[in-house]
Every structure is written in C-alpha cells, then in structure tokens.
C-alpha cells in the first residue's frame, strides 16, 4: 500500500509541477496579501495589547503560511475533482489499488507542496527583514507544523472533492477559506480581535496552527504554543483523512 501511495503521490506532484499556472496562485495571493497587510497595518504593533515584536512582518508571516496552505488544500481538492471528472479516478477504483492509498497519495503530495510553501515564506520573510527568533530549531518547528497542517488541508480538499465530484464547486469554496481564516487569530493577536472573531478564534484550530508557527518566528522556542500548533494540525489531519476515507467508501457504495 505504501508503494501505491507513493506512486500516486508522485503522479499528483508531477501534475502539479507541470502546471505552474495552477501552483503559482497558492503563494502569489498570500504574498500580495502579506505585503498589503504589512504595508497598511504596520503601525498597529503600537496598539495597546499588541505583543512585543520586531516588526509586523514577523507577526504576519505565520498568517501568510497558513493562508497559503489552505489554498493548497483547495487546489488539491480541485485536482482530485478533475481526476474524478476526467475518469482517472474510476480507473484507479477499478484497479486493485488499495482504497486508502487513493486518499493517501493525494494527501502525501499536499505534504510535499506544503514543505515548499513553508520554505518559500520563510525565505521571503528573511529577505524582507523578518527574523526567525527561534533559529534553526524554530525553522524545524515551523516546518513540522506547516507540513502536518498542509497534509490535513489536502485531505479536507480531497474529502470535498469526493463529496461534490465537481471542480468548479470545489473552486467555489475558495471564499470560505477566508471566512475560516478571518475568524482565527492568524492575522491579529487574539486579545485585539473584534466580535465575534474574538470568541470564535479560541475554538478555531487555525488559531493554534498559526500561533504555533508564529511563536518560533516572532518570539522564542517556547514549547507550549508549538505543541498546541502541532496537536491542532495533527487533529485536523487525522479527522480529515478519516472523513476522506468515509467519503470514498460512500462513493464506492453508490457506484
């Protein structure tokens, strides 16, 4: 089963890398949004209650990574839906490929792309004057949380694709990505959020994922937030893979 998963993951990756026009928006939009946020809201670090940071870019970097990873999930979902629309999926199901491998292949590809996304934003941050307070260990923490979260978002995308079987519907959930992200503490300190985000953020795993990556970038290697971030990311991943497998079973039963 591992061999099948890896083979499917390689195919998914190859397809993604061969169509850079689909991959580029994953980092392009969060990068532009990051630039606007930093350029427009730099002064907010002086607000009462804003934690002590070197700059707003340091603070925002984790938000951009989280946003990019979510878009990666949408794009994995679109790719899966295109597979379903194009008939590749049916061919897989008709073959002796293990069911779990069909999900895992797509999800593993999302992990690899997630690693690329994290590295891209860390390098971008360093180039434009951010610092990574946690050093090499901090980078590893960010990578760990980012990869696990990206895997989970990929599985979520896969689940939605299996339920809707339609690429443009998956594309339509794009604005939803922003809704979920805005009601988390990804962009702004939890204490400074306005209602109802201030309350909802505490229950939003994205808050913990973003804060877990922010801690080593903007502050220090305090273990608490990092573990919380990892736990939230792992939770999303396990639940999402479970839901994907259920969705796949459901689809097979109908067929």
């Amino acid at each position: 089963m591992i061999a099948a998963s890896v083979a499917l993951a390689r195919r998914a990756l190859r397809n993604a890398l061969r169509r850079p026009q689909f991959l580029a928006p994953l980092v392009l939009f969060p990068t532009l949004f990051l630039a606007v946020n930093v350029g427009g809201l730099e002064r907010t670090t002086s607000l009462q209650g804003f934690p002590q940071v070197d700059g707003f870019l340091d603070f925002q970097l984790a938000a951009a990574i989280t946003q990019s990873l979510l878009l990666g999930g949408v794009s994995a979902g679109i790719a899966a839906a295109l597979d379903i629309e194009g008939g590749f999926f049916d061919r897989l199901v008709a073959s002796p490929t293990p069911r779990l491998a069909i999900v895992l292949g797509r999800v593993l590809a999302a992990s690899v792309i997630a690693a690329i996304q994290v590295v891209y934003f860390l390098v971008l941050g360093l180039v434009f004057g951010a610092s990574i307070q946690g050093g090499a260990l901090g980078v590893l923490s960010v990578l760990a949380i980012g990869i696990v979260a990206g895997t989970g978002f990929g599985a979520l995308g896969m689940m939605i694709a299996l339920r809707t079987r339609n690429a443009s519907t998956v594309q339509g959930i794009f604005p939803l990505v922003f809704v979920i992200l805005f009601i988390s503490s990804a962009f702004f300190p939890r204490e400074l959020l306005s209602a109802p985000a201030d309350v909802l953020a505490a229950y939003n795993p994205l808050s913990y994922i973003a804060e877990g990556m922010r801690q080593p970038i903007a502050f220090d290697n305090a273990i608490g937030p990092v573990l919380e971030g990892l736990a939230a990311a792992a939770g999303v991943t396990v639940v999402a893979i479970g839901l994907s497998v259920l969705a796949l079973r459901g689809r097979l039963r109908e067929a």
Binding site: G172, F178, V179, L193, A197
Partner: peptide
C-alpha cells in the same frame, strides 16, 4: 454568481473582525 457576490462582503466582515482595532490608531 454567488461566490463573486459574497466575496467582497466576506472580505469586509473578515477584515474588520481581524483588524477592527486598527481604528483606534
């Protein structure tokens, strides 16, 4: 048409939820 119609509203609500305190600057 729904996503295109909703998107600016979502953006407005989201931005003000996240960055609303900036008005205190």
């Amino acid at each position: 048409a729904i996503p295109g119609v909703l998107a600016p509203t979502i953006f407005m609500l989201g931005l003000s939820a996240a960055f609303g305190k900036a008005a205190a600057l």
